[in-house]
């Protein structure tokens, strides 16, 4: 087993789930309103979605927008921190790789 979302029925905080659906590289992934894109991916048992310079898989590390490991493309926007961006129903998410990408994607914008 792996990452997952606490089931709403047994969650002590008493939450109301409103479902949403995003696509990741064309595949539909279900989540709930309020989750970050990283949260949706983790709860769907996806631990990694980005590839580093060597091709090594990466997912969430710091979880609070500091490490930039979890970057994804949302619609036309590259380099969005998945751990901080709330997922919106219909978001079209594309995974990224830094392999063979020189200079590093996005760095010219920073």
């Amino acid at each position: 087993m792996s990452p997952r979302r606490v089931r709403a029925g047994s969650d002590a905080v008493g939450r109301q789930d409103r479902p949403l659906r995003i696509t990741v590289d064309g595949e539909p992934v279900d989540g709930i309103a309020g989750q970050t894109i990283a949260g949706v991916l983790l709860a769907d048992d996806r631990l990694a979605w980005r590839r580093g310079r060597s091709g090594a898989p990466r997912g969430v590390f710091c979880g609070i927008g500091v490490c930039f490991d979890c970057l994804v493309t949302v619609g036309e926007e590259r380099d969005v921190r998945a751990c901080r961006r709330r997922a919106l129903d219909g978001d079209v998410v594309t995974t990224q790789s830094r392999q063979d990408a020189e200079p590093a994607p996005g760095t010219e914008e920073r």
Binding site: M1, S2, P3, R4, R5, V6, D11, V13, R15, G34, Q35, T36, A38, G39, L42, A43, L47, A48, G52, A56, P57, R58, G59, V60, F61, C62, G63, I64, C67, C83
Partner: peptide
Amino acid sequence: WELPGVFTAGAAQALAKGERVVVGDR
């Protein structure tokens, strides 16, 4: 430490507290 599944403690806390996602079972 760069393997997926290695999290900072803060990440585990933020996911559990902030959106009710747990990072693993063991």
